[in-house]
Structure formats: C-alpha cells, structure tokens
Design a protein around this nucleic acid. Structure first.
Ligand SMILES: [Mn+2]
Ligand SMILES: [Mn+2]
Ligand SMILES: [Zn+2]
Ligand SMILES: [Zn+2]
Lengths: 147, 147
DNA sequence: ATCAATCATGATAATAATTATCATTATCAT
DNA sequence: ATGATAATGATAATTATTATCATGATTGAT
C-alpha cells in the first residue's frame, strides 16, 4: 500500500524535527506540497510564487529556511548550475543521480552511471583522498532544441 | 627551445586581441604574470592583492575584466566550487581535466579519466543531447587532512 | 607628431541571491 | 495557563560580481 510521496516526506520531516529542538509548522507542509507537486528544479523565488497562492503570508525568508531544512533531512536536493541561482528539487526516494542540462531551454534530465561512480572512487583513492561527495553536470543541447 | 609559459600565453593573448577590436595594455601582462607564477586556484580578490605589489594602480574591476578575457582565449580556467566565489587558474597547455577538492584544507588536485569522459558522451547521446561541456568535481578529504 | 576614434581603466554605484536581525507570533512541555 | 523557545515576515545587510561613466592610453591615419 505504498505510502505516497507526501506522506513519506512528512514522516521523515517529523522524525527530523523531533530528533532536535525544532517545532511543528503548518507552513512547512504547504511548501513541501508545492515542491513535490511541481516535481521540477525550482528556484526559491519560483517556489515562493507558487506557494503564495496557497498561503499569501509565507515570506521568501521562510522559503529559504525551509528548503535548507528539507535538504538537511534528504527531502530535497540542491543544484547550482551557473554559480548564481540555486535550484531545489524533490530528492526523496530518488537514488543519487547526476544532471544533464540543456543550455538552450534549461531542461534538466536526471542521469546515472554506476561506471562513473565507481571510477570516481578509484580516482579519489589513487590520490589519497576519501571521497565524500561529488557533482557531475553535463551541459548540452536537447533533441527539441536541435530542431 | 620550448617557449616558456608566459611567452606562449602572451602569443595567444596578442592573437586574440588583434583578431577583434581590442587594444594593448601593460596591466594585463602584470596580471598574467601573477596568475602564471602562482599556479594555484585563486579568487579575483587574491589575485588582486598579489598584483597590487607590482602595480598598485590596478583596480579590482580590471582583474575581473582581464580574467574574463583570459578565460575567453583559453589562458585561464574558472572553477566555482561552492556557488559563491569563482576561482581562476592557469589553463594553458593543460588538457581538459576535472577537480578533486579537499573539503578541509581546500587543496585542489587536477584529475583526468578518459573512461568517464567517454561515458559522458554516451549518456548525452542516449538522451538525445549533443554534449557541449561538463563539470565534474569530486569532494573529499586529502591524505594530509586525514592524519 | 597630431589627431580622432575607440578601447582600457579606476572609482564607485548597482545588482542579485542569500543570510542576518529583530520584533512578533506560534508551539510545546509543564 | 504559563514560560521557554522555535518559527516567521519584513527588511537590512552581505558578498561577489557587473554596470556606469569620466578620464587616460592605444592605434592608425594624416
Ligand atoms: Mn554521480
Ligand atoms: Mn571531465
Ligand atoms: Zn532544450
Ligand atoms: Zn586537505
């Protein structure tokens, strides 16, 4: 009976909140719902404008605070493509993945390559590093934009 | 008799300048020398403070302008690790490479993996993309910082 | 060398995304 | 209910970078 994404996310969020000195908030659930519904890579501003339709009192600062919280507990992921604006996306239940981005239309495709992941580990080891994380972004032109 | 790095860089820079409506400038050479001498991944501010010892009249805006020029003609490369500050490094003659960064001391090691590069092409192709560029950064802890 | 056109530059204002501050409100354990 | 403290909105502050603009340097033609 497979809990839906929202329920799984709130479970994680509640656990996280109760494991440290944090308190419940209704607004976080509004933001969570909007993020999961969109299922895209959104900027904080974009998410804010979506969320305001549901609760006009939510301020941009709370969007940033909440997204940080979501990322801390694994509900969302962050992606900074151009060094200026960070985009946030639902990461729950999705295994680790990298990104393939169209430089014309901005489309983002999730990709995964166990071979690359393994090679990264090897490269780090060869250089005496223990690997903690990595970032792989491929930039190109999607089939639509090639037409 | 292998021209030295500075000479090769100035050759490229001169060609680039003469191929478009740009003019000669002494200050660019001071900045170039400082960048090549350091041979590290520097922020614009760091490079500025080095350069000011040679020519105190050089302003930070010219550092940014010149680094952009260097990157355009392939003399320098840009690396934005944390989404906030961009670092610049001598790229001349160095083949394409990716980066392995120590999250404790900031050390940056250049790495290269033909296998990964090839797999990236394949992934892009499988998704209907033509690959234009990519960014691969590995974050870990170097051997010194593990002690 | 003179001159005009235009690029290069420094100082500084502007920008833009994000974070910090702070007064007010909401949550929660007692 | 109450007291402690977290959450929030408004907005000021921050920070890296870019734009503006008046001034100086370079070039190529006279
Ligand atoms: Mn990966
Ligand atoms: Mn690469
Ligand atoms: Zn596209
Ligand atoms: Zn280190």
């Amino acid at each position: 009976m497979n809990k839906d994404e929202f329920t799984r996310a709130t479970d994680i969020l509640n656990d996280y909140i109760q494991s440290r000195p944090l308190k419940y908030s209704e607004k976080r659930l509004v933001i969570l719902r909007a993020l999961l519904d969109s299922n895209r890579h959104l900027t904080a501003e974009e998410l804010h404008s979506i969320v305001k339709d549901k609760d006009a009192s939510i301020g941009i600062a709370t969007i940033y605070r909440t997204l940080r919280l979501f990322t801390e507990c694994g509900i969302s992921g962050e992606l900074t493509l151009d060094g200026s604006t960070t985009r946030y996306y639902p990461a729950l239940g999705k295994a680790h993945h990298d990104h393939l981005i169209c430089i014309k239309c901005g489309k983002v495709v999730n990709i995964v390559s166990p071979g690359i992941e393994k090679t990264q580990e090897k490269l780090a080891r060869e250089n005496g590093f223990t690997l903690e994380s990595h970032r792989l972004d491929l930039f190109g032109i999607c089939s639509d934009c090639q037409k």
